[in-house]
Design a protein around this nucleic acid. Sequence first.
DNA 1: TTCGATCGTTCAGAAGACCGAATGACGTTT
DNA 2: AAACGTCATTCGGTCTTCTGAACGATCGAA
Lengths: 263, 263
Amino acid sequence: MESVAEAARGRKPEEVKSAARVLEVLELLGAEGARLSLAEMASAMAVPKSSLHAVLRTMEARGWVDLDPSGTRYSLGLKALLTGTAYLEGDDVTSLAGPVLDALAEETGESVHLGRLDGTHVVYLAKRESRHALRMYSAVGRRLPAHATALGKAVLSQYDAAEVQRRLVWPLERLTPNTVTDPDAFLAQLAEARLRGWASDDGENSVDIRCVAVPLGGGRAGDALSCSAPASRMDDVRLEEVAQAVTEAAHSLSTLLKRLGAQ
Amino acid sequence: MESVAEAARGRKPEEVKSAARVLEVLELLGAEGARLSLAEMASAMAVPKSSLHAVLRTMEARGWVDLDPSGTRYSLGLKALLTGTAYLEGDDVTSLAGPVLDALAEETGESVHLGRLDGTHVVYLAKRESRHALRMYSAVGRRLPAHATALGKAVLSQYDAAEVQRRLVWPLERLTPNTVTDPDAFLAQLAEARLRGWASDDGENSVDIRCVAVPLGGGRAGDALSCSAPASRMDDVRLEEVAQAVTEAAHSLSTLLKRLGAQ
DNA sequence: TTCGATCGTTCAGAAGACCGAATGACGTTT
DNA sequence: AAACGTCATTCGGTCTTCTGAACGATCGAA
């Protein structure tokens, strides 16, 4: 009998209702540094107030959401931060990447990132900042569309065209005048990246930023290493040099990971 | 009838069972960079496997937990990271603190932290690293016992003795030979901090690190600003100088916050 | 003050999750 | 090869949570 009601909302009957709601609350509050009232969240989630009320009580009691002094607006609690940093600490790749990132940042003098594919986006897992005053803004946890970043293209270059077609949302969203949105041109870029071993981004998500990225091996298909710099410091020659350095760094990190996986 | 069963486990009947379990899973997986099987978690949480199974399916479907390639060990998912960083982005204090931290780090040349009291511990919300090669290790999201840190003592100095007694766990845990564990000595330190406006830590959580902290005003009773350095660069005279700088920084941040709260 | 529009909170009937035992799928040991 | 241990997974009856409407509290406007 539940199939009618559940199918109408497009949800699997395999989900535990209030478990899903807890996660939805966290995502909703996280989405925009939001401070939302119970009623606002209930309407946003299309859930009865009374049901959400009990869920929020549970979350508040455990420090996963905080309540305004007024007692009427919810925001994320400290537990969310603790768990977020625990993700990074518990991750093999991120833990091992530290010294490699340090060395690459030292060698290139530019901003260096470790990224992971998550659906259609890439998430920064770790970074080292450029020594220069003019540098790109970034933050661990930040998400950028995979199709407009070197990191994303590096990861995607490991899949065939059909898989890429399946993984991305078409048409590709345009972020800057340089964003590659034509499917054929995009797939051609991936093919080129696959051949030479590194992907690039020329102002495709942020004007005037050029970036090079190399996917990690060692069984970590979703991760890549990148180096970004303002176009003013990154002409084509320099790009190739940096690509070389990133490739070597990625290789050495991949070796560390393979060793870990084998043992 | 549920009061008997629930009271026996010490839980309020106000909790939604599977909501609490979702959070408990996240905390369990976050606790130690753990990779746990369903059976292990079920036993750790004292919950039937079959019930937890459904919860984990829900969490996995939404990317909150990841499953090993083998399909038998769970770890935190990427959504945990996204929500964790969202906590920081959505937080007024952390957002406003950036420039103040930069200035203080520049002025002192030492590591600077923004911390928040969470129960008996202090959590780092933001940091700026020392320019020196010899520097303390720290990370955003890291928790340290409040009674053994300048940050914690700064926050606690705002409460009276009875409140402090209530908030901490006695006896105070010893972390280093310098940790103050005697209740009277500890309360005396807080009283002194309250008078002069800043708290200090002399190798109490980490040998050879000295630290100064000042609580924030502006209605953010739980937050404090600190500056830490190796004892070799921090004699008593220098400590007073740094305390002065931190006090000014805390004051300017508090002013920013008050302005925000008023508007 | 009074009204109106929020908001969070409560409650009893209805719907769905929870649980224990049984099952199937591995990998390892005997 | 066979038996064992451990693992995730399924299933139907029972019990809990979920729900929608009604309530009470709070604030601002009239």
